[in-house]
Computed example of a mutant assay.
Amino acid sequence: MMIRQLATAVLPVLLAAAPASATLDPPLADTPLTEKMTRETDNYTFEYRYPKSLSRDSRLYDYLNQDRKKEYTKFSTDADRDHADAAAIGENGPRLLPYDYQVHWSQEADIPAFISLTQHWYGFYGGAHGIYGTKSWIWNKSQKKMVEPLMLFRSAEAFNQALQTEFCKQLNEQRAEKRGQPVVTDSDDSFDKCITPSGHAIILGSTTGNSFDSIKINVGPYAAGPYVEGDYEIDLSVTKAIMGAVKPAYRENFAIKR
């Protein structure tokens, strides 16, 4: 299960002192055949990588490099500022550990019209542990632009209605497995309630290479359970109901999974 969301906006940088016993999450797993940029200073470590195969499309290659520049500029500026502020306070001020920010792209599916991509991110900004998540994207090959997967559907409401029942069923099954007990569905605890899938990473997949026939919903930490439970990933097949939620212009790019 993926455990890391590069959002287009970096999470707020924490100024709280990190205890000496703070446990940092392990770095993201390395993958072969990647383009990688790494920068390391006394204040931070930054890493950005993506599969080399994506550079075959020059416009996609330009997009990724521009995104890398934007993310590095934002993160390094924040990290340098926070460490300078902490140092200016003196010996009695907060002791900041080096920050860490990692962005890893992966290709989920490649069909004639689109490339389905995921952007996994991990950040440590002080405190007891880092934070991570996943964001999903679709590269439109003909229009040479990045769009969110939800844009291929008629609306968020239509998308949710098409898969909410199965999504909630699988989510509660995974919750029960992690917690060692069934979920109390009428509980007042927000971590027992179901959530709407459209608000999370919608990862489109293909078993044939011709059309999208599967959907994964990645739910990051704190969204469906406490941090200790990690993220959740719900695997769904494209059904007739989901096909009905797709915009007519894109239905030829989807297929019911057999």
Results as ranks from 00 to 15, higher is better:
Gly205Ala: 08
Arg59Ile: 03
Pro12Ala: 14
Pro19Glu: 03
Lys169Ala: 04
Tyr122Cys: 00
Gly90Thr: 03
Phe167Glu: 03
Tyr48His: 05
Arg68Thr: 00
Arg179Lys: 10
Leu24Ala: 09
Ala22Gln: 08
Pro149Glu: 06
Lys178Leu: 10
Ala29Asn: 09
Glu173Ile: 02
Arg59Gln: 13
Tyr132Asn: 07
Pro19Arg: 07
Ile138Trp: 04
Leu152Trp: 07
His120Ala: 12
Tyr101Leu: 07
Ile256Asn: 09
Thr165Val: 07
Thr196Gln: 15
Arg39Pro: 00
Glu108Cys: 01
Tyr132Ser: 11
Glu47Gly: 04
Glu71His: 10
Gln102Lys: 05
Ala20Asp: 11
Ser136Glu: 05
Ser106His: 13
Val184Ile: 14
Tyr44Lys: 04
Ser211Gln: 14
Ser214Thr: 10
Glu148Ile: 01
Arg258Cys: 00
Tyr232Lys: 04
Ser55Cys: 09
Met1Arg: 11
Glu71Phe: 04
Met151Arg: 13
Asp30Ile: 04
Ala88Met: 10
Ile234Phe: 14
Arg59Ser: 09
Thr31Tyr: 14
Leu14Asp: 13
Ser55Trp: 08
Tyr122Gln: 09
Phe124Pro: 01
Ala176Phe: 13
Ile195Leu: 15
Lys70Ile: 01
Ala128Arg: 10
Ala86Glu: 11
Met37Val: 06
Met1Gln: 06
Asp67Ile: 00
Asp192Ala: 05
Ile215Lys: 07
Gln181Glu: 09
His83Gln: 09
Lys178Ala: 08
Asn92Phe: 11
Pro94Met: 06
Leu150Cys: 02
Glu157Phe: 11
Ile3Leu: 15
Lys70Glu: 11
Ile89Val: 14
Gly220Ser: 12
Leu117Pro: 06
Thr41His: 12
Gly130Tyr: 04
Asp67Thr: 02
Gln143Gly: 02
Gly199Glu: 14
Glu35Gly: 00
Pro32Asp: 12
Pro12Lys: 15
Tyr101Gly: 00
Glu40Phe: 01
Lys69Pro: 01
Ala17Gln: 14
Asp82Trp: 09
Asp189Gln: 06
Asn210Ser: 08
Ala20Gln: 14
Ile89His: 15
Ser76Thr: 05
Val184Asn: 15
Leu204Pro: 04
Phe254Leu: 02
Pro26Trp: 11
Gln161Glu: 13
Ile195Gly: 09
Leu14Pro: 03
Arg81Cys: 00
Ser211Met: 04
Asn160Arg: 08
Ser190Met: 14
Ser214Tyr: 10
Asn43Tyr: 13
Val103Pro: 06
Ser211Arg: 10
Tyr101Asn: 04
Leu54Trp: 13
Trp121Ser: 03
Glu108Phe: 01
Thr8Val: 06
Tyr227Trp: 13
Glu91Phe: 10
Ala7Cys: 10
Leu204Phe: 09
Lys69Ile: 01
Ile89Asn: 12
Lys145Asp: 06
Ala29Gln: 15
Leu15His: 12
Gln5His: 10
Gly209Ile: 02
Tyr48Arg: 08
Tyr227Pro: 00
Pro98Glu: 03
Leu96Arg: 14
Gly244Gln: 08
Ile256Leu: 05
Tyr232His: 07
Asp235His: 12
Ala9Cys: 08
Ser76Val: 00
Gly220Val: 02
Ala86Pro: 05
Phe191His: 13
Thr185Lys: 15
Thr31Trp: 15
Gln119Pro: 00
Ser190Tyr: 12
Arg81Pro: 00
Glu177Ser: 08
Ala176Ile: 04
Leu54Gln: 07
Ala113Pro: 02
Leu152Ala: 05
His83Met: 07
Gln174Met: 12
Pro248Asp: 13
Asn160Leu: 03
